[in-house]
Structure formats: structure tokens, C-alpha cells
């Protein structure tokens, strides 16, 4: 057992060391910058308990039935902002609007949190997709595989090492969430609700990172070279982001008919990011959706591991 643990830690640290390189640090800096701007944007709004009157929505030509909550809130925000901006502009004063806190939370979920989850997914899928494919391509994988380390353990150690590079980003997201909730929303929401939101964002960040990292590991196992593995991971993530964007603007598809919109909604739910949005927005489905993602993540992780254990490796 001593042999095993020493080797496991060596592989984890070796992979982590490789993962945290110049390119990853650039990703951290870029992410910090975008995330900070989006958080600051949310912080700069003025929130209140007041509700915006629904008739404003009647200005929209289409029905807002599907994906009601995010788009309704988003529409309310736009209406309120522009009405306020127009009024202010006509009177020669800066725009001033007090948003209902629910809208603030929605915007917080579909802007900084979606940015954070997408960035975490991108980093984890890229690093994990590179881990085994990189060594297979450079033919250095044999070093690991002729050692007494079991292949399954080597695979999991590489996974832990690669996913470890996402920890600083998760910490940053959590710190940002604590700050924005405390600074902007706490006066208007219950303490329990604030705590629940913080925890849910943290859990969603971890689970989504795990899922995309598992997909990355799977791709790394079945792909012969690093570039293809990373590109495939990138394409999967792009498709997921597009599906989630479609989900946010789902009411627009109501124009095409109820059944079309319903089908599109089901398709958009393939994206883990959509599930994250629904789970964070509604709350009731949170546990269920996180478990689904965790299950799919485990499926990818163990499928990749089984393939890797039985795979022929060249030197």
C-alpha cells in the first residue's frame, strides 16, 4: 500500500505541475478579469424589494411561456432599465433604476455564474483531454505503465491532478459569490436563502467541473493525439453553451408553436449548463439535476478508465 500511495501522489503532483503552466495561468487571469467585470456589473445595480409591474411585458410581441423565469426576469430588467434610461435621458440626469432583488439574482446566475461555469468546464475538459492523449502522442506513457502502479490508479491519479488545476478558479468563484450575495442581495433576501444560494453555486461549480473533466478524460483515452482530444472537448463545450443560450431565449421559439418549443427545450436540457441554470434558478430540482450530472460524470470517468485499462500502448 505504501508503494501505491507514493506513486499515486507522484502522478497527481506531476500532472498538476504540468496543468498549471503558462497557458493555464493566462486562463486564470482572463477568467478573473471577465468574472470580476460581470460581478462588478451586478454589484453596481441598485436592488430593492419592490416588484416591477408585469404590464411592461405586454410590450413584447411574443408569448413568454417557455423558460418563463429567466427570460421574463431578463425582459423585466431590460424594460425597467430602458424606461428608466429614457426618462432620465429626457430629463438630463443619469439613468437610475432600482431592480427587484429576484431579477438581480437571475442576472447574477445567467451572467457571472454562467461565465464561471463555462470557464471551469473549458479548463477542466481541456486539461483532462490533454492528460493521457499528450503522453500517448509523445510516447512517454509507457514509463507509467511499466511501473507497478495499476493502470486504473494511474488513470485516476492523472484525473485528480488535471482537475486540481481548476481548484483556484472554483475558490475564486465561491469568493465572488460570497461577496456579491453579501454586498448586494442580503438586505433583501432571507439569510437561509443566501446561504443556500452560496452552497448551490459551489456544488454546481464542483459537479460541472467534474462532469466536463470526466468527458475530457474519456476523450483523452479514445483519442490518439492531444490536439484532437482537446479540440473535441472544445467542440462539445461549444455545443453545450449554444444549447444553454437557446434555453435562455427559449420563449422566442414559442412563435414556432408549443410542441416545437417543448422539443427544443428538451434538447437544450442535454447541456449540463442548462441543468445548472434551471437548478440554480428554481432550487427544487437542484439535488436531482446535480445527481444526474454526477452520474453521467461517473459514467464517462469509469468508461474511460475501463478502456484505458484494456488499451494497447506503444513506446
Amino acid at each position: 500500500m505504501v508503494n501505491l500511495f507514493k506513486g499515486v501522489f507522484a502522478i497527481i503532483f506531476d500532472e498538476l505541475k504540468f496543468a498549471i503552466r503558462r497557458k493555464t495561468i493566462t486562463s486564470y487571469i482572463l477568467f478573473s478579469f471577465v468574472f470580476a467585470i460581470s460581478l462588478y456589473g451586478a454589484y453596481m445595480q441598485e436592488y430593492g424589494a419592490a416588484q416591477v409591474e408585469m404590464p411592461l411585458l405586454s410590450m413584447f410581441p411574443m408569448e413568454l411561456e417557455k423558460g418563463v423565469a429567466p427570460l421574463t426576469d431578463f425582459a423585466i430588467f431590460l424594460m425597467a432599465f430602458f424606461v428608466s434610461a429614457l426618462q432620465s435621458a429626457s430629463s438630463g440626469t443619469p439613468p437610475d433604476v432600482v431592480l427587484p432583488v429576484d431579477i438581480g439574482i437571475t442576472l447574477f446566475i445567467i451572467a457571472p455564474i454562467l461565465i464561471a461555469l463555462s470557464s471551469l468546464s473549458k479548463l477542466s475538459v481541456r486539461l483532462c483531454a490533454s492528460s493521457i492523449a499528450r503522453e500517448r502522442e509523445s510516447k512517454t506513457l509507457y514509463h507509467l505503465l511499466v511501473s507497478p502502479q495499476p493502470r486504473a490508479m494511474a488513470y485516476l491519479s492523472k484525473f485528480i491532478g488535471a482537475i486540481g488545476a481548476a481548484i483556484p478558479m472554483i475558490v475564486l468563484v465561491f469568493a465572488g459569490v460570497i461577496w456579491i450575495i453579501g454586498a448586494s442581495f442580503v438586505p433583501y433576501i432571507e439569510v437561509e436563502q443566501a446561504a443556500q444560494l452560496k452552497n448551490q453555486v459551489l456544488i454546481a461549480s464542483i459537479v460541472t467541473t467534474f462532469l466536463f473533466a470526466s468527458i475530457g478524460m474519456f476523450l483523452s483515452t479514445i483519442t490518439r493525439n492531444e490536439e484532437s482530444a482537446v479540440n473535441r472537448g472544445g467542440w462539445i463545450l461549444k455545443i453545450m453553451i449554444i444549447l444553454t443560450t437557446v434555453w435562455i431565449f427559449l420563449p422566442i421559439f414559442s412563435v414556432a408553436g408549443e410542441s416545437t418549443a417543448s422539443t427544443i427545450e428538451k434538447i437544450t436540457m442535454i447541456s449540463p449548463l442548462t441543468l445548472d441554470m434551471i437548478a440554480l434558478y428554481g432550487g427544487e430540482m437542484f439535488n436531482q439535476y446535480m445527481l444526474i450530472q454526477l452520474g453521467v460524470g461517473l459514467l464517462f470517468l469509469f468508461s474511460g478508465m475501463m478502456i484505458f485499462v484494456r488499451q494497447d500502448v506503444e513506446y
Binding site: 510516447k139 512517454t140 514509463h143 511499466v146 495499476p150 513506446y315
Partner: peptide
């Protein structure tokens, strides 16, 4: 595999390091 690998040392034709 694990027991066997403790017994062997391998030098490949073109060692990639």
C-alpha cells in the same frame, strides 16, 4: 500486471523521455 511489473525493467528501441 502489477506483480509482473515489479520484476521487469524495460528499455525501448527509441526511448521517449
Amino acid at each position: 500486471g502489477v506483480s509482473v511489473r515489479s520484476l521487469i525493467g524495460v528499455v525501448p528501441e527509441t526511448p521517449r523521455l
